[in-house]
Simulated assay, not measured.
Amino acid sequence: MENLDLLERCYPGRRAELKRAILAQALSSFNEHGIEATTIETIRAECDTSVGAIYHHFGNKEGLVAALFFAALEDQAALRERYLSAARTLKDGVQALVYSYVDWVDEQPQWARFQFQARFVVAQGPHAAELATRNKVRNRQLREWLSEPAHADGLKAIPAELLLSLIVGQAENYCRAWLSGRVQSRPATFRSELAEAAWRSLQI
């Protein structure tokens, strides 16, 4: 099961079994009803646990949203790191960033759907500082790779704040369209075309 596979990677072991069950149901409820409309009671009833257990593990609904969002981010980053570690040239790196993004969304659509709706909620909520800290740690490998002279020289004409939008912007746009049902072909169908478009966008 897609949801449990990711949760088992982030929360392994038997002692985390209840936590995984709560998070799996929360993910399903948030995607089905929306974050705002979903209540702790909704989640409790569906996963057959107590409100006390949910509050013990996650504090409140915002804690549940943040836990899911951080799990998605970390899993996505782990895939990106594996792809990027094999990249040797700048073009390889651009391809790795696009492929890892597209492949993760293609393999984890429920998580990706939640991630899109939760990003603003977490960034504006009580876990915003934790998100900023996690992002710095999560993106360290990417920053180091991009700052290597062999790669940085090819990117020096591009403003730093624009770089990731140029690389993954088109892939993100297609993935959003797929997740919302506006297009039918899975993102991985066009991973090569999206990577090539990203590379061309850097040739300025």
Rank of each mutant, 00 (worst) to 15 (best):
M1V: 11
E2H: 12
N3D: 13
L6C: 10
L7K: 09
R9N: 14
P12V: 05
G13P: 12
G13D: 01
L18V: 14
R20G: 11
L23N: 00
Q25M: 09
S28P: 09
F30Q: 03
E32S: 13
G34T: 00
I35S: 05
E36Y: 10
T39E: 07
T39A: 06
I43V: 13
R44S: 08
A45G: 15
E46R: 14
D48G: 03
S50D: 00
S50A: 11
V51D: 08
I54Y: 01
F58T: 05
F58A: 07
G59T: 04
G59I: 02
G59F: 05
K61I: 03
K61M: 10
E62P: 13
E62G: 13
L64W: 01
L64M: 11
A66T: 11
A66K: 08
A67P: 00
L73F: 00
E74R: 10
E74W: 04
D75R: 04
D75H: 11
D75F: 06
E81V: 14
R82W: 06
L90H: 03
G93F: 05
A96G: 03
V98E: 04
V98G: 03
V98P: 10
Y99L: 03
S100G: 06
Y101I: 09
V102Q: 01
D106N: 14
Q110Y: 13
F114Y: 10
A118C: 07
R119S: 11
V121L: 02
A123T: 01
A123D: 02
G125I: 12
L131F: 02
L131H: 00
R134A: 11
K136S: 08
V137D: 03
N139T: 08
L142E: 00
R143H: 06
E148H: 14
A150H: 08
A157R: 03
A157K: 07
E161L: 14
L162I: 03
L164K: 06
L164C: 04
V168W: 01
Y174D: 13
Y174L: 15
A177C: 00
L179P: 04
L179W: 10
S180K: 14
G181V: 14
Q184S: 13
A188W: 02
S192W: 06
E193L: 15
E193Q: 12
A198T: 07
L202G: 06
Q203S: 14
